[in-house]
Design a protein around this nucleic acid. Structure first.
Length: 628
RNA sequence: GGCGGCGUAGCUCAGGUGGCAGAGCAGGGGUCUCAUAAGCCCCGUGUCGGAGGUUCGAGUCCUCCCGCCGCCA
């Protein structure tokens, strides 16, 4: 096995939110990959960190009454603590507010500026204050914002621009010549899709008058760096670019792991920036999908990404980690539910693996007097178990080359299943009843001990805690793939009964599922219902959402507050018919973005086939009235 | 509106270059007793979203349609 160098990064996470499922998913995948590469004997460097500049941070800090730095310090500490708690093995944790980072950002900006890759330009455009963005002439409908139907304001702002368009052809060629550059392939195609359209130059600054909390441009004190020129550079600054030993050793092996939401900056901006700055391009970009929440019967108790993340405490880090890695097909979206998590925990971890560890160690303790016996000749069954391991080992290695954690784990579970069948067919408890089978019994017990030893190694990247417990039970030390060869378990090794690795979670049978075939809706308690904040709201404006058949954008007042929400009732209600009407809304719903519009709440309506009816108060009630 | 994708067993999903529909889970039946009431064995004719077409033969290729979703504008 060739020993390689491997430098893997996660994105640096923006400190406007505390760690949640999305952050954990990327970080756990990166951790599993790095642990696997270390297990192979590779030199591994694993980087994560936090992105701390920007308006949103400054505002949030002001709201909390602290300095931006203090605010960032707190959230960054929360990320650090979370990764420690989850056993993440990152080698460094970089923050964009650190001097080592700022210095490199400024250095690279200066280099690019000196090389003429950055120019000062004026951007004039029609700006919609509601959307907080510029619109191109093509997008404008009759001089108005296509979303708000409000007049646009022409704004001119001078800023610095990176000549990204220069690198479009080069980048297309690079991607075509390096099929592995972006994987899975769907995202490679998506980037090539971006690049079929002319690439614009990238705005890389904001005037100090509008944005304070950022890294000043080295060549113009009146501006700070904007977003990507700050954030992306962390991957190099953390290594001590340009002279650091780490940079020299690791940069040629740089690979990035990201979620699909930041594909464009990593697949387009970043390589262009590197090329322009004369820095070698990273090796590979690995892109994973999203977790969707809401599937499954227990989803009501999940609610959002934050609560989903809290399941780590409820079910254990290994189980959570296993679920994320096993359930998501790398690159595709997957659905997260507590029900599915418990299903995996019970079926794969408790029944198959935990029980196997428990029964195999007990067999060795009971029938081998607590030591691995010396095996007799290998029979057909033992050979089959051995061959399964050898095949699984190859499959895991192949899968991990593509970040296909799900395939690696299902391969390992083929081995778990094979050993479970072996225990049954070999039936050591029956052999133990007759001394004439003594040699055969020793062979069987050895095979079981050896199987556990191998599991203790190959599971290490995926279930670090459980793998450690398995290794402890069969008396093996630090794991290495080099030891994943059949027959390395020394006869005489003492074995202890494995502790319960994964206790089964007893799923309570709800009354409703017993109440034969009645409504499939499960019951909730009064407290559950009280979590829903229902309010009377008055519709003050309503309009069709452009390019959508079903959606209406409503502006409503709930008491003192005015908010925007999107409702799928356009096929049943004309917008003008709704203005002035009072409706019932869910006021504490997690915001959702539909067709680019953030919806803050949900309008209640009843429906049956073909008919949709909004719920409206029978008597007049002021907006904001509580509904219960 | 343009471009990608997706739609396969109750659920979650596999199914390079066309050749008799698969896995895991759930469910039903059986069995052992070493084990976490776990394990093991047996049980799936599903309009492979719909309709056409190419072919001796199509989840697998082509066209159109429906439904979801993403990206772009």
């Amino acid at each position: 096995m060739t020993r390689r160098t491997f430098y893997l990064t996660t994105p640096i996470f923006y400190v406007n939110a505390r760690p949640h499922l999305g952050h954990a998913c990327t970080t756990i995948m990166a951790d599993a990959m790095c642990r696997y590469r270390r297990l192979r004997g590779d030199r591994v460097y694993f980087l994560t960190g936090t992105d701390e500049h920007g308006d949103k941070i400054a505002q949030a800090a002001a709201q909390a009454g602290v300095s931006p730095q203090a605010y960032a310090d707190e959230i960054a500490a929360a990320f650090r603590a979370t990764w420690r708690r989850l056993g993440i093995t990152n080698d460094d944790f970089i923050r964009t507010t650190e001097a080592r980072h700022k210095q490199v950002v400024q250095r690279i900006l200066q280099t690019l500026h000196d090389a003429g890759e950055i120019y000062f330009g004026e951007y004039g455009g029609n700006y919609c204050f509601g959307c907080e963005r510029f619109y191109t002439d093509k997008e404008i409908v009759g001089g108005k914002c296509p979303d708000h139907q409000t007049p646009l304001t022409f704004i001119k702002e001078k800023n610095y621009f990176f000549r990204m368009s220069k690198y479009q052809e080069w980048l297309i060629t690079h991607i075509e010549e390096h099929p592995d550059f972006i994987q899975p392939e769907r995202y490679r195609n998506e980037v090539l899709g971006f690049l079929r359209e002319p690439l614009q130059d990238l705005s890389i600054s904001r005037p100090r008058s509008r944005l304070q909390w950022g890294i000043p441009l080295p060549f113009d004190d009146g501006y700070v760096t904007y977003v990507w020129f700050d954030a992306l550079i962390n991957y190099a600054s953390a290594l001590g670019f340009p002279d650091g030993d780490l940079y020299r050793d690791l940069w040629p092996h740089c690979e990035h792991l990201i979620g699909k939401d930041i594909l464009k900056p990593h697949g387009v901006y970043w390589p262009s920036m590197l090329k322009a700055a004369g820095i070698p391009i990273y090796q590979r970009l690995h892109v994973h999908g999203y977790w969707s929440l809401g599937g499954g019967k227990m989803s009501k108790s999940v609610g959002n990404v934050v609560e989903a993340f809290q399941l780590t405490d409820k079910y254990g880090y290994d189980a959570f980690r296993y679920f994320l890695l096993r359930e998501m097909n790398f690159g595709l979206d997957a659905s997260f539910s507590e029900e599915a998590l418990v299903g995996r925990l019970n079926a794969d971890l408790a029944n198959d693996l935990g029980n196997l560890a428990s029964r195999a160690t007990t067999l060795i303790v009971n029938f081998g007097r607590g030591h691995v016996p010396a095996p007799g000749p290998e029979g057909a069954e033992e050979a089959s178990v051995r061959e399964t391991l050898e095949r699984v080992r190859r499959e895991v290695d192949e899968a991990m080359k593509e970040f296909a954690f799900q395939r690696a784990l299902s391969a390992i579970w083929e081995f778990v299943g094979r050993v479970n069948r072996y225990v049954d067919s070999a039936a050591p408890w029956a052999l133990a009843k007759d001394d004439s089978h003594a040699e055969r019994l020793r062979t069987v017990l050895y095979t079981l001990g050896e199987s556990l030893r191998c599991l203790g190694i190959v599971l290490d990247p995926f279930l670090p805690e459980a793998a450690g417990k398995i290794r402890a039970a069969v008396g093996t030390g630090a794991p290495s793939l080099a030891d994943l060869e059949w027959g390395r378990l020394a006869p005489g090794t003492p074995v202890q009964k494995a502790p319960g690795l994964f206790p089964r979670i007893e799923v309570k049978v709800s009354e409703t599922s017993q109440a034969a075939g009645q409504s499939s809706a499960s019951r909730i308690t009064l407290d559950d219902f009280k979590k829903v904040d229902l309010r009377v709201a008055e519709v003050v404006a309503a309009e069709k959402v452009a390019r959508s058949k079903k959606l209406l954008k409503l502006t409503v007042t709930v008491g003192e507050e005015t908010r925007t929400l999107v409702a799928g009732i356009a096929e049943h209600y004309a917008p003008e018919a709704l203005v002035g009407r009072k409706v019932i809304v869910v006021a504490n719903l997690e915001p959702a973005t539909l067709m680019g519009i953030e919806s803050n709440g949900m309008v209640l309506a009843g429906s049956t086939e073909g008919t949709v009816s909004l719920l409206m108060p029978d008597k007049d009630l002021p907006p904001g009235s509580r509904v219960k």
